[in-house]
Write a protein that binds this DNA or RNA. Sequence first.
DNA 1: TTTTGAGTTGTTCGA
DNA 2: GTCGAACAACTCAAA
Length: 485
Amino acid sequence: MTTDRRTDPARPVIVLFRHDLRLSDNRALTEAAATGKPVVAAFVRDDEAPGGRPIGGARRWWLHRSLEAFAHSLKSLGIPLVLRRGEMQAIVASLVEETGADMVVWNRRYDPHGIEADTAMKATLSAADVRCRSFEGFLLHEPWRLKTGSGGPYKVYTPFWRALLATGDPRPPLPAPTRLAAFAGKVTTENLADWNLLPMRPNWAEGLSAEWTPGEAGARRRLEDFLSDAIEGYSRQRDVPGLRSTSRLSPHLAHGEISPFQVWHAVRGLASWKEDSDKFLRELAWREFSWHLLFHFPGLPTENFNARFDAFEWRGDETSLRLWQKGLTGYPIVDAGMRELWRTGWMHNRVRMVAASFLVKHLLIDWREGERWFWDTLVDADPANNAASWQWVAGSGADAAPYFRVFNPVLQGEKFDPKGVYVRAFVPELAKLPDNRLHRPWEADAATLSSAGVKLGATYPVAVVDHQEARQRALAIYNATRGDE
DNA sequence: TTTTGAGTTGTTCGA
DNA sequence: GTCGAACAACTCAAA
């Protein structure tokens, strides 16, 4: 990969940005700075190119804001951000042509389309005698490096985690470059506004704006807040959706506004709260595991990891799918989660499991439908975590939940949101119900309902399925799927 | 090659 | 109310 080919110091180096919209701990950028060559910074978007998967609505909003922030940071170093979209290979070839660059650097991607596109790009560039260098930065461990004793990829999380720990601490993060040589020539850029990433009418992004600050500075602040406010007690409180007890770093990581190296070392460096920081680092390692799986099983977002599930007879019930999407299932914890997702572009992890399990096991709707909905609505949607987690819940995935594990939405609600802080925030029409009926409004007597202003079937839906019946149905079908093959 | 131990996140039932 | 067992086998990872 690395050649000894010399480059001409007067000719520029192109730095490609994709999922790494940050200045600090950005190896490609640091290496470019170290050459002393003039730098051309380009964000190239190929999700809409053939073979790509267009990013969803929530990520479009995020990307717009993140690019604004990133362009601003680069500008403070005297470098404009060039925006292009299309096929990676063609765009970069034309950038080389326009600028006379003799070197291109980037941080690696790990999704199947990204790998393919970058491989093709590299071949084109190398054939044209342009020096290429690619770097790590999105993942702590290159997915091809961690192997089981017999040389294969890991399919179970715990051995993966142990192997990850056994390789020692990942490299420390790099500081942001303090100076970059600007490229004197003119490079045309597309207009961010022309990408139409922001929703217009209706503007559903207000809730997203209220919750998130996309960009490197926002990511850093989120990490600092987490370290000062929430890491202590994380192992116990992370499951309580009514507390701000998780890091909420996922969308920042997905866009590369912060790197896993930065997160790892910030948390690893904490002297106290060992149990809590370990627990959190295990979560970070789940992200690694999902990408490891996607790398080795590129079909993960669309195909059952466990082929036995190909015979599973999902119900294609459009009506209940819509109710689930809108947060109108009649189960308060599920509805709160789905509405949090719609309003803020994010959902608490515990509630993701409950809501996902509900779609798959109570409604018997194909996990791919859920995956698609999350892809469109999550600001942190990525092909690895989203697919791996859905398959995990469905039981078709690697190291998956056993089929008989059917979350009871009432018990989950009462256990993790006992005071109803979460449900009341997102399902205000139930807010006046007492705690002991909040997660099971159908058991409230008429007086309680009426004094709370709740009329089932009118102000809040009647449950779309009965838990016990749905559970029995799921167990029967899952059971049948297991045997015959 | 064979064997062995283990495997994120739960629910329900009956003692 | 609390507690332990059953739920079911299967596959993975490593010795």
